[in-house]
Design a protein around this nucleic acid. Structure first.
Lengths: 163, 163
DNA sequence: ATAAACAATTGACACCATCAACCTTTGAGA
DNA sequence: TCTCAAAGGTTGATGGTGTCAATTGTTTAT
């Protein structure tokens, strides 16, 4: 019905805030063009994420938690930071994961206030399958010309390094 | 205490499914590398989206609805499709937006079952500010070298076209 | 020793999401 | 025409996600 037929409003917008990156005005148009395109593609793709997590009977947030937890043990408050959410939210989140035998609370010896989260055996196994599924590249990447894939990979590597 | 103590586990994973894109095995490693990096950056960035929507006292989903509605009137069921969610979910969603005077239900003349959604004056105004804010490029884009921004923009344009 | 700061939990409340059941309207077919 | 299946939307029940305020238990600083 509307294949972005009249998308004028997006291009014409003027960011009201100051350019936080400190870039010049001339560069900002370019960065915004790149970002807008990237954002559109990604936003479209991210709609699939809940369904992807559901393949493993996980909610999107639970999938995100398993992802983070694979890197090693985390305190609950650290996890709350990663998720950018309130600590009280993490309590119930971990309750449900623990009830399913995917993670374990272990009281820290150094500081008996904090509880460290670790994956159980089953949790690590599920995480492995989830990661493999998550990192399957979507069509809009696999169908790129190979030189675009190379360029994209290199650009993202540089961006990750300076971030 | 569990394996996976060190990172890098992502690179080693083997997608269990067949390469749906029909690409060669040799290319798949490349596509996956590009996608994994892109996914990591984007996933990190998307954590800010709830906070961004909250600047306008919107939930993330409400922001998404306003975005879609700017393209023109939509039936409730069409909106449910865009959101990849159940129709019953849209009812409450629109209830809250309508209660805030941002959208309006208009019964269709052709088919009295369907209700078309349109932005109110206030809704269109809020949407304009929201869009401007959403398309402000994040630091990882603004701080790229200019040639990377150009390359990224061109790659994304091509990807959008063939999608 | 007392007070301040911190980690996690609890309870109250709102939103998001699904499913099943329902009502109205529409569109075909007997 | 009359009936009936299908579609659009709503309602009610249930559960996950998220916030805030208040609480408990444990450090840490004064």
């Amino acid at each position: 019905m509307n294949g972005y037929s009249d998308s004028h409003s997006e291009q014409a917008v003027r960011p009201s805030g100051a350019p936080s990156g400190g870039t010049e005005v001339g560069e900002e148009g370019l960065a915004q063009q790149a970002w807008t395109l990237l954002f559109s593609l990604l936003h479209t793709h991210m709609r699939n994420f809940p369904a992807l997590a559901a393949e493993f009977e996980l909610s999107p947030v639970q999938a995100h938690v398993l992802r983070q937890l694979g890197e090693g043990a985390l305190a609950m408050s650290t996890l709350a930071n990663y998720l950018s959410c309130d600590a009280s939210n993490v309590t119930g989140l971990v309750d449900r994961l623990e009830a399913r035998g995917l993670v374990e609370r272990r009281s820290s010896e150094q500081d008996r206030r904090v509880k460290m989260l670790v994956l159980t055996e089953a949790g690590a196994e599920l995480r492995g399958r989830l990661m493999a599924r998550m990192f399957e590249p979507p069509p809009f990447v696999t169908e790129m010309p190979e030189e675009d894939q190379v360029a994209l990979r290199d650009i993202m590597r540089r961006a990750l390094k300076t971030q």
